[in-house]
Design a protein around this nucleic acid. Structure first.
Length: 871
RNA sequence: GCGGACGUGGCGAAACUGGUAGACGCAAGGGACUUAAAAUCCCUCGGGGCUUCCCGUGCGGGUUCGAUCCCCGCCGUCCGCACCA
């Protein structure tokens, strides 16, 4: 019955078909079982799956299969993040329609994923580019519009003059468009925005509740939201059409150190000054040309120009401060204007030094003489005592802030308080307009008479036209002959359709909700079903979405809750961010990158040699880096599955490194995993040869050797469960390997033929082993299960029941230390009392020797852990 | 500049809330089987004395009976944000 070698090429497709036929992974909306929703970030259909996908989906599949075996009703779906620029780029390059390109890629990648043996409910598959998906997104956009969560405004955006589209910030690399390489311009355009800032505080506060998220991601979101507390201070102006200027500050305590005010180049006050003064206009023009890349900012000098306007100090109407336009003030943050206190802010100091504006110290650091305190090049931003500050003198920074706040709240200017406490956020509203074809059309119509009119529900979806050309850059929807020409739904006159489409991050902001009811034709979700499944219990994906996708989704869920589509506000209860798959790089003498498949690597002793497979030319082995097409350090999952099988690939992806860290793909590593697959197969084969018949259960055993099998299996099963609960796949695998090694060793020692008790114990141990590795290597597990005599599939079997009695050791090894140094080991009963343990430790020969007759001062006993004798 | 994470054998790593440092694997070396190879099996594998000992978790200090783990100060690597008032 058992062949020597396990053949994944035969077994894997066979079991995949069997699971499919039995609909083993279909999630039921209801029933008595507790629900568990496990989801991996859905892929972009770029062409083929890569090793990162294999790792991501292998992890999710282990969780799904494990939870299923624990008796939970598991939802584990898959879909496609199918809109986006690469489809249009492909269309421009080789003329194929984005839809055709996308759906062909989906077909390829679907079959690749299926060959991995993932326990996915494929009946719920969705693609975001399908009108049956995006029609609901359009409906929700209109709901958001009605609820005030979507709006249109003119805003500064990154404009790629070659591709003629807006680019997201992350698509601008060192000031250039990532595809065209053209220098990106700042343009003012009218764009659609989602009001994520409405939820800034809530998104921040609720991070505290996400205790199953990595600390790192929560911190990144916190920094991104960027809350800071301060004051809005109103300054009376002189010499401007505006009579006052609002300024945001987090340091109102330093107001007596003010030397100037400064506004952003695009501040209304700057524009007004530009009309009066050509030098101001020239400066503003200059600012527009400056890049926004990190490198540009690093080297940028603080520059500004005096507007001629003067502002009165809020605490002294005779104290006049010059108002500058400055290149380091941002219109988007705070009030777009600041007051400069050079002594206590580095940027203000740099600016003041450049324009000889002076610096008065108003916060004296502890231990410094107020009379001599001064600054030259380094501003002091620490705590201290206020000086040179009138009524604030002698107060601490915190006290002074409170005092200033009280004073400004009660003082008035033009009948309103001079200042108010204000919380400011870095988070900006989410600009979702894209001048692109392959995205979800924004369902509005522009009418000269009626303005912006929502497309009526009855006309949804606003589908993309098929007959478009990509022979020129720009948006094909804009130049389509008829698509944008419509009649106004309100007045019936000719009107224009919105030709912008939505950012693809909108598509991915609610797909997890759609999976709960993917075929609903009338609504994005149905409340009862969505409320049952959501939130996602375990979400798994890359750290690169720490802010973007994960923050957008948190906002979108809140917006869907507000518009009555959902009953939850947090989409992902547990989040796990997995590491990347990395690989050595290979380069030949001409500097060309080589694929690992085209390189022979051999080891002579400790040194490593690499040559090209085709002509044997020498190849240098480069640093280990993230797998990327450009460096060719990629391994095709198809090749691995063909050569080794999916189980081997899955096992290796799970076993070598902790799941949140990078894993190095290596040929040796895969071979090690493949060896283990065969080892398991042989082990289960030899165990089944001596095991009792299928269905027999161990009763009470008295044979020590048989009991040893049971104890070993139960002990390891407990450990594996603990590791899986914590998503520690690498240590779970190690535990399974230990079990296999131990069972192999025990099997060597049994007498032939085995006793009845022994046979039953062996059956139990073999079945437990198979169940334990089934989440990781499901095909091998089914094949072993069948070989053990089962007719039913393992996929519907329960996780092993661990008997705590068997799992706990009855004898344990306890180290004995003398003054913290280990001197002996005692093997004692697990339940030994401290007195006996102490006596036994002190009697021990090695301990006695180490004591050298010295007086024992104290004996510390940590039960089940250690004995430390202090002399 | 700000914020964060991490530094353990030749390599990937393990060590639960302070309690035997190096589990499990990879590589390497030695051996068995074989005509031979592959596969498989056995042994060695942090360093040094090599029997019972000493040193060792980036470096320096501290707390503790006891520190990879906690505290302080350095050094290094990686990541995120970045003129955020």
């Amino acid at each position: 019955m058992f062949s020597d070698r396990y053949n994944p090429r035969e077994a894997e497709p066979k079991w995949q078909k069997a699971w499919d036929a039995a609909q083993s992974f279909k999630a039921e909306d209801g029933g008595g079982k507790p629900k568990y929703y496990v989801l991996e970030m859905f892929p972009y259909p770029s062409g083929r799956i890569h090793m990162g996908h294999v790792r991501n989906y292998a992890m999710g599949d282990v969780v799904a299969r494990y939870k299923r075996a624990l008796g939970m009703n598991v939802l584990h779906p898959m879909g496609w993040d199918a809109f986006g620029m690469p489809a249009e780029n492909a269309a421009m390059q080789n003329g194929s329609h984005p839809a055709k390109w996308t759906y062909e890629n989906i077909a390829t990648m679907r079959s690749q994923l299926k060959s991995m043996g993932l326990s996915i409910d494929w009946s719920r598959e969705l693609a975001t580019c399908d009108p049956s998906y995006y029609r609901h997104q359009q409906k929700m956009f209109l709901d958001f519009l009605g609820a005030g969560l979507a709006y249109r405004k003119r805003a500064k955006v990154n404009w790629d003059p070659v591709d003629q589209t807006v680019l997201a910030n992350e698509q601008v690399i060192d000031g250039r468009g990532w595809r065209s390489g053209a220098v990106v311009e700042q343009r003012e355009l009218t764009q659609w925005f989602l009001r994520i800032t409405d939820y800034a505080q809530d998104l921040l506060d609720a991070l505290e509740t996400l205790d199953q998220w990595p600390e790192k991601v929560r911190l990144m979101q916190k920094n991104w939201i960027g809350r800071s507390e301060g004051m809005l201070v109103r300054f009376e102006l002189n010499g401007s059409e505006a009579r006052e200027l609002d300024v945001f500050t987090t340091r109102p305590d330093t107001l007596f150190g003010a030397k100037f005010l400064a506004v952003a180049p695009d501040h209304p006050l700057a524009r007004e000054a530009a009309q009066r003064d050509p030098s101001v206009a020239a400066f503003i023009e200059d600012c527009k040309r400056t890049g926004t890349s990190a490198a540009a900012i690093e080297t940028l000098e603080k520059k500004g120009v005096d507007t001629g306007v003067r502002a009165a100090h809020p605490f002294d109407p005779d104290w006049r401060l010059p108002v500058y336009v400055a290149n380091f003030v941002l219109m988007e943050y705070g009030a777009g204007a600041i007051f400069g206190c050079p002594a206590h802010d580095q940027r203000d100091l740099d600016f003041a030094n450049a324009y000889h504006l002076g610096a008065t110290v108003v916060v004296c650091p502890a231990g410094q003489d107020p009379a001599t305190a001064q600054v030259s090049d380094i501003a002091f931003d620490g705590d201290g005592v206020l000086i040179n500050s009138g009524f604030l003198n002698g107060l601490t920074v915190a006290q002074a802030q409170e005092e200033v706040a009280k004073r400004l709240e009660t003082d008035t200017l033009f009948g309103k308080p001079r200042g108010e406490r204000r919380v400011s956020y870095k988070l900006r509203d989410w600009g979702i307009s894209r001048q692109r074809y392959w995205g979800c059309p924004i369902p509005v119509i522009h009418c000269d008479d009626c303005g912006t009119v929502p497309v009526p529900d009855s006309q949804l979806p606003v589908a993309l036209p098929d007959d478009v050309s990509f022979d020129r850059p720009g948006n094909p929807l804009e130049r389509h002959p008829t698509w944008k020409n419509v009649t106004c739904p309100e007045c019936g006159k000719p009107a224009r359709r919105e030709t912008d489409t939505m950012d693809t991050f909108v598509d991915s902001s609610w797909y997890f909700a759609r999976f709960t009811d993917p075929h609903n034709e009338t609504a994005p979700t149905s409340r009862a079903v969505a409320d049952h499944w959501l939130p996602v219990d375990q979400y798994i994906g890359g750290i690169e979405h720490a802010v973007l996708h994960l923050l957008y989704s948190r906002f979108f869920t809140r917006a869907m809750e507000k518009t009555a589509h959902l009953g939850v506000i947090e989409p992902f209860k547990g989040l796990f961010t997995q590491g990347m798959v990395v690989h050595e790089t290979y380069k030949d003498e001409s500097g060309a990158w080589l694929f690992p498949a085209d390189v022979n690597v051999s080891t002579d002793g400790a040194s490593k040699r690499a040559t090209a497979r085709d002509d044997g030319r020498p190849v240098s082995v480069g640093p280990i880096e993230k797998m990327s097409k450009s460096k060719r350090n990629i391994v095709d999952p198809d090749d691995i599955i063909r050569d080794y099988g999916a189980d081997t690939a899955r096992l290796f992806m799970l076993s070598d490194s902790p799941p949140d860290r990078d894993v190095i793909w290596s040929e040796e590593g895969v071979q090690g995993a493949a060896r283990f697959v065969q080892q398991i197969w042989r082990l289960v084969g030899s165990m089944s040869a001596v095991a009792s018949p299928c269905g027999t259960q161990p009763g009470s055993l008295d044979e020590v050797a048989a009991l040893e099998f049971r104890k070993t299996a139960h002990r390891r099963a407990q450990k594996v469960g603990e590791h899986l609960e914590r998503l520690r796949f690498n240590t779970a695998v190690a535990e399974i390997r230990k079990l296999a090694n131990e069972l192999g060793a025990l099997l060597q020692r049994i007498e032939e033929p085995p006793s009845a008790q022994m046979s039953v114990a062996i059956r139990e141990a073999a079945e437990m082993l198979v169940k334990l590795f089934a989440p990781m290597m499901p095909h091998l597990a089914e094949e072993c299960w069948r070989a053990l005599g089962h007719d039913a599939m393992l996929v519907s079997a329960a996780w092993p029941q661990v008997d705590p009695e068997l799992a706990s050791d009855d004898a344990i090894t306890i180290p004995v230390q003398v003054n913290g140094k280990k001197r002996a080991e005692l093997i004692v009963p697990a339940d030994i009392d401290n007195g006996k343990l102490e006596a036994e430790a002190l009697q021990n020969e090695a301990v006695q020797k180490a004591l050298e007759g010295r007086m024992v001062r104290k004996v510390i006993i940590v039960p089940r852990r250690i004995v430390n004798v202090v002399v």
